[in-house]
Write a protein that binds this DNA or RNA. Structure first.
Lengths: 155, 155
DNA sequence: CTAAGACTTCAACCACACTTGAAGTCAAGA
DNA sequence: TCTTGACTTCAAGTGTGGTTGAAGTCTTAG
């Protein structure tokens, strides 16, 4: 029985290895309040194994298009002091479905524009429903700040 | 007949007004080689009206998820010295359809993961097909640089 | 003619999501 | 014990896509 049992508390390097997220990123997430860690007497971080799931959730939420600040706000809804249940994780992301639907709709609108719009001259702007959607589509690329339909800081 | 005829050459402010893109952004695009301009004797920019379409194309391409550098490369395929035809614009974007399909597929995968994956523990990473897609999905949010499946600079 | 507003360049700044490096401490195997 | 590698903090740097400001020039309406 010389097999090493799976460690209960993970170092930052171990958590990095398990999640694929760089240790520097994990420290950064802590700095931004997305994750936390116990500390050893000497100051080294120690994570419970459930933390890997929290990190995975962060990555998932990023893919959805949330900023770290938004993710932080979401994570605050979770219980403190114990690992969240599967259901609690699922509840957290329940509202994202609409967001994804909107994104898919925009992409499909863009795809139609590929044939309908670019060639025909609709690209004359101003009333193009493809280039001028109502949603913000933040995570779909930065784009110029003041696009048609977005209001500049104080117009 | 005191009506002002539509100007043949646009100033940067006029092009900004027509496209909804800030003048500073237009200068920035010029700096990056995406657009060009004639100059008056005094150095002021003058754009042909067809430039509005080029700018619209840039915005469109950004929505698709292309970086400015990628867009620059695309635009280099266009003829110089004359305004491109509608067909030429359409050809340029013909290959984007696949890209959009992939993005839509990823979003739908993410949406399924909302119910299938987050709650069930699949979020344990490493083999999660949702968090570990083969494409890069660059425009879907930055995310940590070294995600599972991406190779660090030299592993 | 003159004043306002639009234009010019250039450098600096912004947000986001990290990475990198310096300087030092801690932990674990030989 | 020693040495190596992993850890610590903090500051500074990176890339993308711009914006903002300073200092000066040009254009145009009155």
């Amino acid at each position: 029985m010389t097999e090493t049992p799976p460690p209960i508390w993970l170092t930052v390097g171990e958590l990095a290895a398990r999640t694929g997220v760089a240790a520097s990123a994990l420290r950064f997430y802590e700095d931004r309040g997305l994750i936390g860690a116990r500390r050893t007497d000497s100051g080294h971080r120690r994570y419970p194994r459930s933390m890997a799931r929290r990190v995975a959730f962060i990555l998932f939420a990023q893919r959805i298009g949330l900023s770290l600040e938004e993710i932080r706000a979401e994570l605050q809804k979770l219980p403190v002091g114990r690992a969240p249940s599967g259901e609690e994780w699922a509840q957290l992301s329940a509202t994202w479905s609409d967001r994804l639907d909107q994104r898919v709709a925009e992409l499909q609108r863009l795809k139609r524009g590929l044939t309908d719009c670019i060639g025909c001259g609709c690209l004359s702007l101003e009333r193009c429903a493809i280039l001028n959607p109502s949603d913000q589509a933040r995570a779909l690329g930065a784009g110029p700040r003041y696009w048609l339909g977005d209001s500049p800081p104080s117009d």
